[in-house]
Design a binder for these strands. Structure first.
Length: 368
DNA sequence: TACTCGTGGCC
DNA sequence: TGGCCAAGAGT
């Protein structure tokens, strides 16, 4: 697929800009080092790309540092219990990424001798690696001229060529444009340059066109309607669901937890026992408690917004005397609670019942 | 294809 | 304040 209208100066101008303005990131080999022949570690490229899926750079940084300290290479990650990975991922969201991360590490360690495939097709065969991530790893780690298209690049190209087809149908055209633009040399730097441009200059709102190295080549800019692209359909409404969570506290401060099923929402993560989440306010949630106790309702529900619904979670607390836990439940003592695989919504629920319980002693002291 | 799947920051 | 958005993948 070729697009004769693509000015060949776009990759050249962009790489010249990148040489001066590349962001310094923990997982990145910058253009200067890259020119000296330093190659990125495919493990670190892979790990960062998985973490960065639908997630901001600022949110990823501390997780990337922790993961690489705990697991310096893919063999170490594969050898670790999956629950340790889920605990380290807690709070980052999209938990299927953590499950697939561990599965992928196992396959690379056992079936590929600890080395990642170098081709797009080989990478795409691995769990958690789709079109974008396969192209990104091939380009960044191996300088393969694979067409990388993420949300940033989609926006940049939609504006450069004023692509009117609404997303996601327009992705096909954008991918063809990107395949045509991607240079045979410095494909990894080119992909990262496009993403940096989208993140820093060609932003969704109020793009800084006066600072853009491609401003003279941008069709949308020439028409003065850069913010109209990419064209997207209107979004569906977010319904509200209701549920209840039961925070049982033992005399020593331990909290009763259970593990969620492996698939679906928050799959494989931990939580206090609770009701299902439904579209209606439950009449008597206490009837659904894991056991009879003096359940005290917290004054306000925890409100949490997921991608496609909003949750109002009524939280109940009870002091209980117990030396056993129901099947598939366990008592998590105070010093273990901050390290549990608790998604943010469940940390919020526990915090509303026991302020400070999910924070480490150090972070509590730092906050004070 | 269209839906599911988290979280936090921004204006 | 709430809608939008972020280096998407799996089904």
């Amino acid at each position: 697929m070729t697009n004769p209208g693509s000015p060949p100066s776009i990759p050249t101008d962009l790489l010249a800009w990148y040489d001066r303005h590349a962001r310094s990131l923990p997982w990145r080999v910058g253009p200067k080092e890259r020119a000296r022949g330093i190659r990125p570690d495919p493990y670190r490229v892979w790990l960062s790309e998985i973490m960065l899926q639908q997630t901001t750079v600022a949110a990823v940084k501390p997780y990337f540092d922790r993961f690489t300290a705990l697991w310096p290479d893919v063999t170490a990650l594969a050898a670790s219990p999956r629950d340790d990975v889920m605990k380290a991922w807690a709070g980052l969201g999209y938990y299927s990424r953590a499950r697939n991360l561990h599965a992928c590490a196992g396959i690379v360690a056992r079936d590929h001798g600890g080395r990642f495939p170098t081709t797009v097709d080989g990478l795409k065969a691995l769990p958690g690696i789709g079109d974008y991530t396969a192209a990104a790893i091939a380009a960044i780690a191996h300088d393969e001229p694979a067409p990388v298209v993420d949300g940033n690049i989609e926006r940049v190209i939609a504006r450069l060529f004023a692509i009117e087809t609404p997303m996601p149908q327009g992705k096909k055209d954008i991918r063809a444009r990107q395949a045509d633009l991607t240079p045979r040399q410095r494909a990894g730097d080119y992909a990262q340059a496009m993403m940096d441009l989208g993140a820093a200059i060609c932003t969704p709102k109020r793009p800084a066109c006066v600072l853009c190295p491609l401003t003279s080549e941008c069709v949308a800019r020439a028409r003065g309607e850069q913010e109209r692209f990419p064209v997207k359909p209107p979004k569906a409404n977010r319904p509200t669901r209701f549920g209840a969570a039961f925070v049982a506290v033992r005399g020593d401060g331990a909290v009763l937890l259970r593990q969620r099923p492996d698939r679906g929402l928050l799959g494989g993560m931990s939580e206090p026992p609770g009701t299902d989440w439904t579209g209606e306010q439950p009449d008597a949630p206490v009837d659904s408690a894991p056991f009879a106790a003096d359940w005290q309702a917290m004054p306000a529900p925890v409100v949490h917004v997921f991608t496609h619904f909003r949750l109002e979670l009524a939280v109940y607390r009870a002091a209980v005397v117990a030396d056993t836990a129901p099947a598939n439940h366990w008592w998590s003592p105070p010093d273990a609670l901050p390290g549990e695989a608790l998604p943010s919504v469940m940390k919020k629920a526990i915090e509303s019942a026991i302020p400070g319980a999910t924070k480490t002693k150090r972070s509590r002291k730092d906050a004070a």
